[in-house]
């Protein structure tokens, strides 16, 4: 018997806004989240310092799940679950 019905199709979407400045990182994050399906993960990579704070604010305002925020040598990665 197949258990295909139990498989959840989940996609991971990567958004690269390295080098982009206000308001592009926020806007591109929103665009990707709009296109994503519930359960999908959107991972945003960027360097604009203010966006590292502001994307999590947007995630909260949109009632989505902020999974992870990390930074290494000025490059941050933010993972969001829709």
């Amino acid at each position: 018997m197949s258990n295909k019905g139990l498989l959840i199709k989940m996609t991971e979407i990567h958004v690269d806004v390295t080098g982009e400045t206000c308001p592009v990182p926020l806007v591109e994050t929103r665009k990707a989240l709009r296109k994503a399906s519930p359960g999908d993960i959107v991972e945003v990579t960027g360097t604009h310092p203010a966006s590292k704070k502001e994307i999590p604010m947007a995630v909260k305002a949109l009632n989505l799940e902020l999974m992870e925020v990390k930074e290494e040598q000025g490059v941050w990665k933010i993972r969001i679950r829709k």
């Binding site: 308001p23 926020l26 604010m57 949109l62």
Partner: peptide, 8 residues
């Protein structure tokens, strides 16, 4: 405007 749209 785009900031506001991005924040829902």
């Amino acid at each position: 405007a785009n900031g506001a749209l991005s924040m829902g």
